[in-house]
Amino acid sequence: MVENQTKIGWSKAEMAQKVALDIPDGSYVNLGIGMPEMVADFVPEGRELIYQTENGLLGMGPVPEAGKEDLELVNAGKKPVTTIPGASFFHHADSFTMIRGGHIDVCVLGAMQVSADGDLANWSTGAANAIPAVGGAMDLVAGVKRIFVITQHNTKDGKAKLVKQCSFPLTGKGVVETIYSNLAIIDVKEEGLFVREMGPNVDFEYLKERTEAEIFR
């Protein structure tokens, strides 16, 4: 058996699994749209998490079987979902009372850029012709106790996403606790970005070359 391509870093599923491992049993969790949604597939056996979706559901269950979708039962990405036994519905002001009021334990979000200080930019490139759209991201980072970011380490054209300072408009300042990239798990501490774990076949030099912000180990 010949492996002519060495796998570097983690797959999306492995990244989601790494995030899931760090969410304590009994947490109330809000998952952003896209890659963060995958985290729900990897909750370790014996742990119970309750998912909040900001459009008005606490106790979100998995995607419904084909043909059983209810167009009025959707997640924040406007995709059909289900409810778990014990779920509840509420209006938007109550939903953001949960979020802004500090009642949600963990939020997992995607990122365009994260800075060395834990600033997050994930809503706009600031380009003149882009239609700005923010959704609930600014409320989530302002109110949820712990913000985890799951993201590719670099952009599709190889640019660093972990930067000294965000060039894109901020979602929130100093809000990110941990970054889960395909190359490493990195904690944001007062002294800077600390690498906690590196993916398969990733070493510190390789990581440094792909990271604009200073990283420590």
Partner: peptide, 24 residues
């Protein structure tokens, strides 16, 4: 921001003219 939008509407209905929020 979505939560600010919700609270601006809620407070409008509740007779509260303005509020402070950490969002944004």
């Amino acid at each position: 921001p979505q939560g600010t939008l919700a609270e601006r509407i809620r407070s409008g209905g509740a007779g509260v003219p303005a509020f402070y929020t950490p969002a944004s």
